[in-house]
Design a protein around this nucleic acid. Structure first.
Length: 471
RNA sequence: GGCCGGGUGGCAGAGCGGUUAUGCAACCGACUGCAGAUCGGUGUAGGUGAGUUCGACUCUCACCCCGGCCUCCA
């Protein structure tokens, strides 16, 4: 039974999808105005893990993630770059997808763009206007939060305590209430000159940020969906506003489970340009490898802050290598497996089932991946223990099959099965000969050569185990 | 001020009212031509003060400390 922590109730709840067998998820995606930093990717990875876990538990999943390709920053920075908005955002959309691949994140079923959904946003504004939940002022359309009694239910912020009239008047000429947010923003002269505008009943506009998510999720899933994900900083105001827009328009519950990922910080500090500690993914992936970064991110529960540092990364890397090494060892051993019986067969044969129970229980407990990884390490140890003495084919296959299942569920060890080149195998063969002749000098020289070619050779009683070098 | 988190061994990070988390690092041992991989073992914990209990890291209360959100932000 999967339990998820729902921000709406601030409790772990048993997860039950609307439709028996298909889970609908909407994930807040990137604003494509620069290369996403590693914190962004931590959140995207959280959603990927959620999808993988749901699939592991037997659900089919329909994930939609938006691409925000029009907002203040994209407009501002495209100009700075001397590019059209479209050119500019396409470039960074590509960057975004590259990053997903580096982390082995599965593609969503759709990535709707804000600019492709402006009609829907205008329609939504009209509906809200008709219902008295929105108003026009100076060519912009605003949401009237005072007309939506549930406003604040997600963020638990209390807006009644704001004294109307006292602290409110800063931009009164602009909005009725400073907390009111913009649905459609009147185009500026500059935007019009650059062709970045849309015609609406209220004149030339461009969409406000919050509006796109309501429209796109309802386009794909109708008024209600199962899960909506994003980073904690989106709880307010973004997701609060989505609720106001969607539920205000449809009078139906919008999202059933709100899942929010905690932030990644660096050396105990928030990432910020002024501190110069903003890391981008390609940089990290170069240094540690994509799967290591993925593994590192997964080694902290999604609702806890992840304090990134070099030593943290190195520890994660070692831990990752250990798991990968065991997989290699299993694969190697299975080549020489037999049908003989070994003393520990009976003892080992049932362990995988128990470990899988532990693994599933961990994941079902609000996606406790750190715990699941601990179970994975147990499987690793059990496997290695068996390899010390046993070679029974059935036992080894059972261990290996569970090992791969864990790997797939966690999105690890995806690029398996790289064949060792013929040339390297030649060297290994010659080295074996030298070793048989106890010619250690030649053997060691050959080993150095193999290492220089990027491979490692480990001598075992079943013969040499050749593998690609770590990282 | 309001709302929410959190404080576990050298580091990272889990579960649990009483029995080893797990990994990394360290140390010892085994295996090995050497190496690698691996196995076995060892040590180091639970912010502070009370309370509940036969027994609390785990429950209750108070306090201290740290962080986040309340403005754009994954």
């Amino acid at each position: 039974m999967l339990q998820l922590y729902n921000t709406l109730t601030r409790k772990k709840e048993v997860f039950k999808p609307l439709k028996e067998d298909e889970v609908t998820i909407y994930a807040c995606g990137p604003t494509v105005y620069n290369i996403p930093h590693i914190g962004n990717y931590r959140t995207f990875l959280m959603t990927d893990n959620l999808v993988r876990i749901l699939k592991y538990l037997g659900y089919s999943v329909n994930l939609v993630m938006n691409i925000t390709d029009i907002d203040d920053k994209t407009i501002r920075d495209s100009k700075k770059a001397g590019m059209s908005l479209k050119e500019f955002t396409e470039k960074y959309t590509e960057e975004f997808f590259c990053g997903l691949d580096m982390l082995n994140i599965k593609r969503a079923s759709a990535y709707p763009r804000a600019t492709e959904n402006v009609d829907g946003m205008i329609e939504l504004a009209q509906i809200l206007m008709e219902k008295g939940l929105a108003y026009e002022k100076e060519g912009s359309v605003y949401y009237r939060i005072s007309a939506f009694p549930d406003y604040g239910k997600l963020s638990k912020l209390n807006f009644n305590s704001i004294k109307m009239g006292a602290s409110v008047d800063v931009d009164e000429y602009d909005k009725d209430n400073p907390r009111d947010f913009v649905l459609l923003k009147a185009s500026t002269q500059e935007e019009i000159e650059r062709g970045i505008y849309y015609e609406s009943p209220w004149g030339k506009i461009r969409p406000g940020w919050h509006t796109e998510c309501s429209v796109m999720s309802m386009n794909h899933f109708g008024p209600s969906l199962d899960i909506h994900t994003g980073g904690v900083d989106l709880i307010f105001p973004h997701h609060e506003n989505e609720i106001a827009q969607s539920e205000g328009a449809t009078d139906k519950p919008f999202v059933r489970y709100w899942i929010h990922g905690e932030h990644l910080i660096v050396d105990s500090e928030k990432m910020s340009k002024s501190k110069g500690n903003v890391f981008t993914l390609p940089k990290l992936v170069d240094k540690y490898g994509g799967e290591v970064v993925r593994f590192m991110f997964m080694s902290v529960h999604y609702r806890k802050k992840l304090d990134f540092s070099d030593s943290f990364a190195r520890h994660a890397q070692n831990s990752y290598f250990k798991l990968r090494e065991t997989l290699e060892n299993l694969k190697f051993a299975i080549k020489s497996a037999d049908d003989n019986e070994y003393p520990s067969d009976q003892e080992v044969i049932d362990l995988p089932d128990n470990l899988e129970d532990d693994f599933r229980n961990a994941l079902e407990d609000d996606m406790n991946i750190p715990k699941a990884i601990a179970v994975y390490h147990e499987l690793s140890r059990v496997s290695n223990q068996y390899l010390e003495a046993g070679r029974n084919k059935d036992v080894l296959e059972k261990l290996l099959s569970l090992y791969r299942k864990f790997a797939d569920t966690l999105g690890l060890f995806a690029q398996e099965g790289e064949e060792v080149p013929e040339k390297i195998m030649e060297l290994v063969k010659i080295r074996e000969q030298a070793r048989n002749e106890r010619d250690w000098e030649t053997a060691d020289a050959l080993r150095d050569k193999i290492v220089q070619a990027g491979f490692v050779v480990q001598d075992t009683c079943e013969g040499p185990n050749v593998k690609r070098q770590k990282c």
